[in-house]
Write a protein that binds this DNA or RNA. Structure first.
Lengths: 193, 193
DNA sequence: CAACTCATTGAGTACTTACTCATTAAACAC
DNA sequence: GTGTTTAATGAGTAAGTACTCAATGAGTTG
């Protein structure tokens, strides 16, 4: 049997991934690989044993993140067409991953195509549920007759705006926690007839 | 008289500034100084004769930009409280400087404090006029009774969202030109009672 | 126990960047 | 015309980065 080695290798990989998530959340994706090795208590070279390039490490993190978050958004279907509860759930999931999500909003522009697309896919996940609910409520004349994708973009634009300017709106605090109800209230009152 | 030298020095400075504006608009603020020297047809060292550090070059560009754009926004007062025309004018000014403005939206987060503040000041300029009009229309019950600053953030969030995702919404084209009327229409119909 | 495999190491390499400074030549003062 | 000032030059420096690879030693196998 050749188990102990495999196990240790897997553990090292996980340590690197966890360290990278932390370091990138705090310092951004241009943080040096040396900082990740430090955080993971692993030699610098070890990173390149597990990931041939930094880009492959980014991609791995993004795919993990996408899976995690998609799993949490799947439960959105439970809420049916209750827009308020969908919005609440949306923000709650983002709060859970606020640091990393904020980094993505800030830096996705500079990530390579593949990573960018993964991030866009995450947003599509929410949009599916929200658009469905919006269309339903528009047809029921509860929500204004505005193209639903523009409503969705307004919502995401608002949230990302607050995330990007977090230092301004809520210094040393979670913007999403602080403004959750204000954001939802504002958006709801805007879209309603 | 010692004129020719001063004139040539000033011209070189302007050439560097113009080149930097172009290069940064196209490649972002992390573009190497060598690219700017190339574009300006000036030696690499020349840049540091006129600007002690790259940061001082960034700041100079931002201050120029702020002055230009503020001058154009000052005419906003002519429009009084006509929100639609204010929004139109806002987008028109941004269209005029779209490439550089887009870069700022994308990268302001990483610029040093002073540059970031200059960018924030630009946004305040618009907010003054727009908030005034919004408050007026709220008191006249034409616009919904939502905190005006949240309405402003919704508007700016929407525009910045479209700018950030320009490649998605309008590949190889100006997002603002393409979506100007849609954005204004959407926002107006949302805020109205 | 001996031979071998392989995850891990960290000093070293190759590259890119902002910034320097001795040198040059054009503009200027007399 | 001669000497001085100074804008401009570009090869050179220092610092930081991702990535490599020969050496190590713990794990594994017979």
């Amino acid at each position: 049997m050749t188990e102990k080695r495999q196990l240790q290798k897997a553990q090292t990989r996980e340590r690197i991934i966890a360290a990278a998530l932390k370091v990138y959340s705090e310092q951004g994706f241009s943080a040096p690989t040396a900082a990740i090795a430090d955080e993971a208590n692993v030699s610098h070279g070890s990173i390149f044993v597990h990931f041939p390039t930094v880009e492959s490490l980014w991609l791995c993190l993004l795919e993990n993140f996408s899976q995690d978050i998609n799993a949490e958004f799947n439960s959105l279907s439970e809420y049916g067409n209750d827009i308020e509860r969908l919005l609440e759930r949306h923000i709650d999931v983002l709060i859970k991953h606020e640091d990393f999500y904020k980094r993505l909003v800030k830096e996705a522009v500079y990530l390579p195509e593949e990573e960018k697309n993964t991030f866009i896919a995450i947003q599509s996940m929410v949009s599916i549920h929200l658009l469905q609910a919006l269309e339903r409520e528009i047809s029921r004349k509860v929500v204004k007759n505005v193209p639903p994708h523009m409503l969705f973009n307004t919502w995401l634009g608002l949230i990302h705006y607050y995330l990007l300017n977090g230092d301004l709106f809520a210094p040393q605090d979670s913007v999403l926690k602080r403004y959750k109800s204000a954001l939802i209230e504002c958006f709801l009152s805007l879209i309603k007839q």
